[in-house]
Write a protein that binds this DNA or RNA. Structure first.
Lengths: 225, 225
DNA sequence: AACAAAACATGACAATTATCATATTAAAAA
DNA sequence: TTTTTAATATGATAATTGTCATGTTTTGTT
């Protein structure tokens, strides 16, 4: 099994602020495994007793409603930590985590890492910064939900994914999502999301290869009213 | 001017985890002042260089859109800290803070408190917990905006304000908000909020004395579909 | 290849919510 | 107090978005 102290992934998250000794200790108690696409990593109401370091793949944090809708609140990709909040709070998770494609993760038990959060100020400050960033993003989403149309929100979702998760060599978005996923990010009905994407295609803002989406006119998307 | 180390307000926020020495030092550099209702405390895009401890009153954190709408993301009341994120992040604020009634606050410069955040793990863990709580609340709002109707969201806003900010001796909500404020919390048009409140009144779920609102049937509000 | 299942797509219509117009009432200012 | 202004209220209508129906394409499986 790989060693945390040598793992490149840690550069992208708060774990980079741990000392070598701390990393060695964590490395010895972590569990490394693969998660198949569609697998529920943890459920709403579940009490997490650790944090996942995402080595590869992507997952969604979402909440199911009674009528079967599943609002996606955040996507966690390669390099990021999943379930950070469980380190800090005793409350159970209000969200469900589901793998959107095949993933490789390391699970670090809370008991092993909580002491570092108390003792290593650089680490805890890093986690704090991460949390502050997430909070700012969440606030922005609230404002968007209230003030922007489905069309605008979907355009922004495409831009966000394009800018933050990157593109394949052929220019298509590297994160492959279903139309239903897009609807659940934007907070609309699947049919509405499909309709808007069809319109974007007609307008030359995007093109599609199967279910892959390629952004053709980024500025055009930004100008959507 | 009052002294932080003797201030009762600090019991309700992370400052309680500072040592007496730290509090004395902070007390000497804080600025204490009153803010009139309607005053903008800080604007969107502004870089905060400190944090406000709210001794009395209430303010809103919101964002204005081009069409004049002002989405309220969070309300900060007596006892809480305003602008915590500025301690952690160098980014400018994405939100505006406006006093909803007359306030008394203490402003603590970032330069004085940032060292404590690095050195006092108990304090930084407290801030971390606060931030985690805010994040959870923000996530819940996102989900509500996507999955619930205006009627449901307004009912929940009334319940939230009732449960978290309390009521006056006569039973009316202690936080006095305009119909427009309610609309801006829920993320709807002012007229829509007014209409729903009128309906709640007809249904006996609330009563009104002027613009004051009294919750008459809490369980009824919870059952709104 | 043939079949089944899932995802995508689009039309028709319904429900929700926003916008505009216009009273009415309450609060603030002269 | 009178006047002016702002907040609340409600109707009429329009715009947006959701829902249901149904067909097509894609994907996966035997």
């Amino acid at each position: 099994m790989g060693k945390c102290e040598q793992c490149i992934i840690k550069q992208f998250n708060s774990l980079k602020s741990l000392t070598k000794d701390e990393l060695v200790r964590i490395s010895n108690c972590k569990t490394s495994y693969t998660i198949k696409k569609g697998t529920v990593i943890f459920e709403e109401g579940e009490t997490l007793n650790g944090v996942y370091c995402v080595k590869d793949g992507i997952c969604k944090l979402s909440k199911l409603s009674e009528n079967g809708k599943d609002q996606i609140v955040k996507m966690v990709v390669k390099g990021q930590l999943l379930g950070q909040r469980s380190l800090v709070s005793e409350e159970s998770s209000n969200l469900q985590a589901t793998a959107l494609n095949d993933m490789e993760v390391c699970f670090i038990p809370k008991s092993e890492i909580i002491a570092d959060l108390q003792k290593n100020p650089k680490f805890s400050f890093d986690v704090l910064q991460d949390m502050a960033h997430d909070l700012k993003e969440a606030d922005d989403i609230i404002v968007n939900m209230a003030q922007k149309s489905v069309k605008q929100r979907l355009a922004e979702a495409l831009i966000y994914i394009h800018d933050n998760f990157g593109v394949n060599p052929d220019g298509t978005l590297s994160v492959l999502l279903s139309r239903e996923d897009f609807a659940n990010i934007v907070g609309t009905a699947t049919e509405s999301a499909i309709r808007v994407l069809s319109q974007f295609k007609k307008d030359g803002l995007i093109s599609t290869i199967g279910k892959q989406i390629k952004v053709e006119n980024l500025n055009g998307l930004k100008r959507i009213e």
